[in-house]
Design a protein around this nucleic acid. Structure first.
Length: 443
DNA sequence: TAGATTACGGGG
DNA sequence: CACGCCCCGTAATCTA
């Protein structure tokens, strides 16, 4: 425990009472040493939030265990059939869930063309991204892809979740880690309720198992495109701010501007390309990766990115300004002053340094989004309690609430108003709200 | 046998 | 040549 060494000059004791006493000691030693901005983050956000999170953990969320177990049965049958199918295509039995055995079957026995290699050991990859190009090459591939998807859902969600229901409360209780993510986000563990499937229909069905208490309904409220809105605000880029202020569809607007096409004429694939770039720019995506994702050449991807920065010049300026600040100060920070130290910015190894740069200009955006939803949670908690409603989960940009059936509309409206007003920026924040008997039906 | 490592894949 | 940010959980496999 470095913190103890540094601030109290003691090691981490073995016995629980002394550990508790020392932790308590830290609780008044550390906050007193914070400077202004950091003290405000602690006093106004993190300390009150810890009480909100504690109540959310204790409250838990109701699960329809019978539904999830039934889904698991169905899926188990399908997985077994797929396994037979896969082994028939291979010509012999093998452990389909072993990537090492699968590697030999695909690339040595069936002589399929291996593409990607694994990162650390250089084996021939069997990941989805490596199998997808082979989809039409052999009927074993689509069977494998479905097997992978379904066994993931069964093994990670359908089977473990019902077994984790607390017999005393009859509900499922996660733990939120408040100080483990470098950007200021929360994380959720044991079980992780921040990665419940939504993208595929088969996965999304799992959300039907998250249900409201009798007499209550679930309300989900989502910040839409909060990170891009923050990029517009923090960078000061006027074109991007204008897009949000005028209520435009940001991806359509981007495609229109970058490609020089009227908005009404933007095709779905052009909009998809713009969406990929809008998100990719936050992560520092290379032209190489973009070209891959869009199925276009490296050179064309490069032109696309250049055109993007020409349309939104403030974004490149933000990146440069943030990197200069980070090299100078050794850290970068959010709008509220939450810091992340990034010593890699001074690394002599280029790969390490560039990785540090991506981290550095992403953190203020991701971290400010985390700050804002935390503020919203602290403010919402009291208002909701007074109305007999309660916060259940935070999934980064989304809050899930359980509300008395009679007051659903009123509470949904309150959530939207309060979340949109959690910060005042040069662009509006937008929150989408939905209600239903289960999580699936809130969207 | 337990813990660590690796590959993989679920979410924002 | 490199090659997209932040997490957590599972299963297979390796290592102490």
């Amino acid at each position: 425990m470095e913190v103890l060494e540094r601030y109290l000059n003691v090691g981490w004791p073995d016995d629980a009472p002394t550990r508790a006493a020392i932790t308590f000691e830290l609780l008044h030693t550390l906050p007193a040493q914070l400077d202004d901005a950091r003290k405000r983050i602690y006093d106004d956000i993190e300390r009150p939030l810890s009480a909100v999170l504690a109540r959310m953990e204790v409250r838990g969320v109701r699960l329809d265990a019978d539904y999830l177990r039934a889904q698991s049965e169905v899926m188990g049958g399908r997985i077994a059939a797929l396994e037979q199918d896969i082994q028939r295509h291979a010509g012999h039995e093998f452990s389909v869930s072993s990537r090492d055995q699968l590697e030999k079957v695909l690339y040595d026995e069936l002589n399929l063309e291996s593409g990607k290699k694994t990162k650390l050991t250089g084996k021939r990859s069997t990941a989805v991204s490596a199998l997808e190009p082979l989809r039409d090459e052999h009927p074993i591939i689509p069977a494998l892809l479905e097997y992978r998807e379904l066994s993931k859902l069964k093994g990670t969600y359908l089977d473990p979740l019902p077994a984790l229901i607390n017999p005393r409360t009859g509900r499922l209780h996660t733990t939120f880690a408040q100080a483990s993510v470098a950007t200021g986000r929360l994380s959720s563990l044991n079980p992780n309720l921040q990665n419940i499937p939504i993208r595929s229909e088969a996965g999304r069905e799992i959300r039907k198992g998250f249900i409201a208490d009798p007499g209550f309904c679930l309300i989900s409220a989502d910040y839409s495109q909060i990170e891009l809105r923050l990029l517009a605000h923090i960078s000061g880029d006027e074109a991007m701010q204008q897009a949000f202020t005028s209520g435009a569809d940001i991806h359509r607007r981007t495609a229109s501007q970058v490609l020089g096409v009227m908005e009404e004429l933007v095709t779905p694939s052009q909009r998809r390309a713009a969406k990929t770039v809008n998100f990719g720019v936050l992560y520092g995506m290379s032209a190489h990766r973009l070209g891959n994702d869009l199925g276009i050449g490296y050179a064309e991807a490069n032109r696309f990115i250049e055109a993007y920065f020409a349309v939104y010049p403030g974004i490149r300026a933000y990146i440069e300004r943030t990197l200069a600040f980070g090299r100078e100060q050794g850290y970068v920070e959010t709008l509220y002053g939450r810091r992340r130290y990034v010593p890699e910015l001074k690394a002599s190894n280029r790969t390490m340094r560039e990785a540090g740069e991506r981290v550095a200009y992403n953190m203020p955006i991701q971290g400010t989004a985390a700050d804002i939803i935390k503020v919203a949670m602290v403010r919402l908690d009291e208002r909701l309690s007074a109305l007999g409603a309660r916060l259940l989960l935070q999934v980064h940009d989304e809050l899930l609430v359980e509300a008395p059936e009679g007051q659903t509309d009123e509470i949904a409206a309150l959530m939207q108003e309060l979340m949109e007003g959690a910060a005042s920026l040069s662009v509006p924040l937008s929150v989408e709200v939905g209600a239903g008997p289960n999580w699936y039906d809130t969207k």
